[in-house]
Design a binder for these strands. Structure first.
Lengths: 132, 132
DNA sequence: GCGTGATTACTCGGATACAAGATGTCCGAGTTTGAGCGG
DNA sequence: CCGCTCAAACTCGGACATCTTGTATCCGAGTAATCACGC
């Protein structure tokens, strides 16, 4: 059980976009360079963020990706859910509204983590960085 | 990112052992039957719990697995760590005591979950079950 | 009745097989910008 | 100077290729209890 690298890339990319002064689209090439990833792979990940409504893409020359919603609103949890999916981490005994006590404990612990991620906004960290 | 089925099996097995009245070893066959797993695979998982010092095995006829420490002490986190490993869920930018702000947030959220799992003891749930 | 050996019921560990998911690449298609060229 | 066309710079999406990990099985080896047999 581990976060995928894709999540790491997505978080860093979003951090960059949130910290960015302008709202001009940023090319995938430029975003990939900063993280030592291939542009095509990063593009595949960012597609998920687009589908989740976090960013939008502009095609053609001078195109790229830019934030869609308000800079202040982006939380860690939204990004992670967009990449990893929203399914529960723990599958149990058939699990349909399971009365399994173990399942309940696991869900509660997972919720504790998500609460923290929901409460932490990207912009809190971005403000500590020099603006681009 | 998901918990493995192995973790599920380990948790249920430990729950059974904690809830068990006697401290006689329980055969892997019997443990496997309750969870619809092959005995050989379950045995492989339980080996990890043995190495972690949570249970001990008795070989030969009438052998099996039994709790090693005190029933009251077994927490969810110990079991999960024994099966999944203790490594952090999130690998970041090289990560050596990383100053990466994203990494810090991820670690903190993970810690929130672990805290909950550390605080919840198996026996709390076992007591709600009928003793065997 | 009592020791001794064989049989049986177990766990242990390694080797292996299989499937799924993560990671990454390649390419063709569509889109926008901008430059170049002709009128 | 204006408009048209064409090339360049992009993203998009699907199809592959590869690697790792989770899941599972099989088998030979060792070990403890139990049963059978002979003294």
């Amino acid at each position: 059980m581990k976060y995928s690298k894709a999540t790491n890339y997505a978080l860093h990319t979003m951090m960059y976009l949130v910290a960015s002064e302008t709202n001009k689209p940023v090319g995938v090439q430029q975003l990939a360079d900063k993280q030592d990833v291939s542009p095509t792979y990063l593009s595949k990940i960012l597609t998920k963020l687009v589908k989740a409504g976090l960013i939008e893409s502009a095609s053609g020359a001078g195109g790229g990706y830019r934030l869609k919603g308000r800079r202040e609103d982006v939380s860690f949890l939204e990004i992670i859910h967009a990449v990893e999916g929203t399914a529960s981490l723990f599958d149990c005994c058939g699990n349909t509204h399971s009365q399994c006590a173990i399942h309940r404990v696991m869900l509660a612990s997972e919720e504790a983590m998500e609460q923290k991620l929901r409460d932490t906004k990207m912009i809190e960290l971005a403000d500590a960085l020099p603006r681009k």
